[in-house]
Design a protein around this nucleic acid. Structure first.
Lengths: 241, 241
DNA sequence: TACAGCAAAAGTGTGTACAGTTGCCGTGAT
DNA sequence: ATCACGGCAACTGTACACACTTTTGCTGTA
C-alpha cells in the first residue's frame, strides 16, 4: 500500500518548510486537497465531505481529517463543530486586503533583512535575480514565455529576502498571504513591459537600501512595491471585468 | 459521557471566534494543552507524547491529535513526520520580533478602521475605554489592582479596533502574535504610571485619527504605540535580568 | 572500552467500528 | 394548507486495534 509515494509530491518542499503537520500519507493528501481547492474542483463555500474525499483519494478518513485540519490552519478552510469543513470564500476585497497585509509584512521583512544583513549565498541569489531581470527587460519588449521567466526571477528575489529576515513567524504569515488565491508573488499581475520594468527597478532600490543598511528605507520601498502590485491587480481586473 | 461539558470551558469564545477546528471534546482538550504550554507544565522543546497526554486528559488519542494539530497551526507546536509534536521555543529575540509584527499588523488594522469607519457600538466601547482610562490615571498613581483593570481597558481598546478593521486574516494573524508567550496586548509591561499615561494618550490620538478619517496617521501612531510597548518590554527585562 | 548491529519497546500513522449530532423528509394534527 | 413532531439517513466525533517507524539499550566483537 505504498503506491501513493510514486504519484504526486507537488510542492512538497514548501509544505515541510512551513512546519506543516501530517505525516507520509496525510501530507500528500493535504497537497491534493489544496489543489482541489485552488483549481476549482471544489468551489467556494462547499462542504468537504470526509467520507467522499477518503473514497476519492483512496485513503481512510484519518489522514483526510488531518489534512483538512491543516488546511484550516492555513486559512483555506473553515471549521464548524459537528458540521465539518467548508471551503473559505475569497471575495475580491479579501484578496485586495491580503496584498495590503503582504505589503506590511514584506516591508517588515525587508527592514529585518537590512538590519541583519544578507549571507553570501543570499546576496548571490539576489544579485543573480537582478541581473537576470535586467537582461530580460533590456530587449524592450516581452517574447513568449518571458513573463513566466520573470515570475521565477521575482519569486527568487522575494523568497530570498524573506529568508534573510530570519523570522519564522513572519515567513509563515507571508506564506499564508501567498496561499490566498491570486495573491502569490509568483503571480505577475502587471503584464505591461513598463510596469514590470518599474517593479524590477524597485528590486534594485530595495537591494541597495539593504546593502546600505538603511532598514527604514528598505521597508518603505518594499511596502510601496507590494502595494503597487495590488494597484496593478485592481487595474487589470477593472480592465477585464 | 458528557461530563466534559461541565468542567473546563476556558476562553472558549476566543477559540471559536478564530475558526479553530476540533469539535466538542477536542476543543476543550486544545485549551487544556495550550495552558500546559503557557503555564510551563510542559517546557520548551519538549515532546508531546500522545499516549501520555490522552491518559492525563482522559480522552482517546484522536482528539489529542486534533488538538495538537490545531496548536501547531497556531504556531505553538512544531511537527515532524513520525516524530510527533514538540513545544516550540520562544527565545527573547522571537518575542521581540513578534512585537514588531504586531506593530505592523495593528497599524494596518488602525488604517483599515479609519478607512472603513466604526460602528456605533464599537465607538461606544472605545469611548468608554478612553474615559475609564482617563479616570484611572487621573489619580496620579496606581492603587493595588489598578494595573489589572487597565489591562482590561487596554484589551477592549485593541480588540474593538481590530474588529473594526473588518478583516479576518488580519485578526487571526494578530491573534497568533498574542499567543506568543509574553506578547499579549493584555500584558502591561510598563508598570510605571508615566508610561501607562503615555500609552493611554496614544489611544486618544489613535481614536481621533480614526474619527477624523486619517488612515495613515492612525496607522503611524498605532505602529509607534505597539513598538513602544516592545521598547518598554526590553527595558523592563534589562532591569530584571 | 568503544562501537556496530540487532532486537525489543515505545511512539506515531492509519484503518475502521461505533457513538453522537445534525438536517431532512414524511406524517399527522390543527 | 401549514406547522409541529418524530424518525431516518447522512455525516462528524471518538475510541481502539493494528501497522510502521524511531529510539533505546543490550549484546557480542574488535
Amino acid at each position: 500500500m505504498q503506491e501513493i509515494e510514486t504519484s504526486d509530491q507537488t510542492d512538497l518542499k514548501t509544505a515541510e518548510a512551513a512546519s506543516i503537520r501530517a505525516g507520509n500519507r496525510a501530507l500528500s493528501v493535504m497537497e491534493r486537497i489544496r489543489n482541489f481547492i485552488l483549481d476549482g474542483t471544489v468551489s467556494a463555500g462547499e462542504r468537504m465531505n470526509e467520507v467522499r474525499l477518503s473514497k476519492t483519494l483512496d485513503v481512510s478518513r484519518t489522514p483526510v481529517r488531518a489534512a483538512l485540519q491543516a488546511l484550516a490552519g492555513e486559512g483555506l478552510l473553515d471549521y464548524a463543530p459537528n458540521r465539518g469543513f467548508t471551503v473559505r470564500e475569497f471575495p475580491l476585497n479579501v484578496i485586495v486586503d491580503a496584498y495590503e497585509i503582504r505589503a506590511s509584512l514584506e516591508g517588515l521583512a525587508a527592514r529585518f533583512a537590512a538590519e541583519r544583513g544578507l549571507s553570501d549565498s543570499e546576496r548571490e541569489v539576489i544579485e543573480k535575480s537582478l541581473v537576470a531581470g535586467d537582461e530580460l527587460l533590456s530587449r524592450g519588449e516581452f517574447a513568449d514565455g518571458d513573463l513566466l521567466i520573470y515570475r521565477g526571477i521575482n519569486g527568487d528575489f522575494h523568497d530570498t529576502l524573506l529568508a534573510a529576515a530570519r523570522n519564522r513567524m513572519l515567513s509563515e504569515m507571508i506564506r499564508i498571504c501567498h496561499h490566498v488565491p491570486m495573491s502569490s508573488s509568483r503571480n505577475i499581475v502587471a503584464f505591461e513591459h513598463r510596469d514590470v520594468r518599474r517593479r524590477h527597478d524597485d528590486h534594485h532600490r530595495i537591494y541597495e537600501a539593504i546593502m546600505a543598511r538603511e532598514p527604514w528605507r528598505a521597508e518603505a520601498i518594499m511596502r510601496e512595491h507590494v502595494s503597487g502590485v495590488r494597484a496593478s491587480l485592481l487595474k487589470s481586473l477593472k480592465g477585464r471585468v
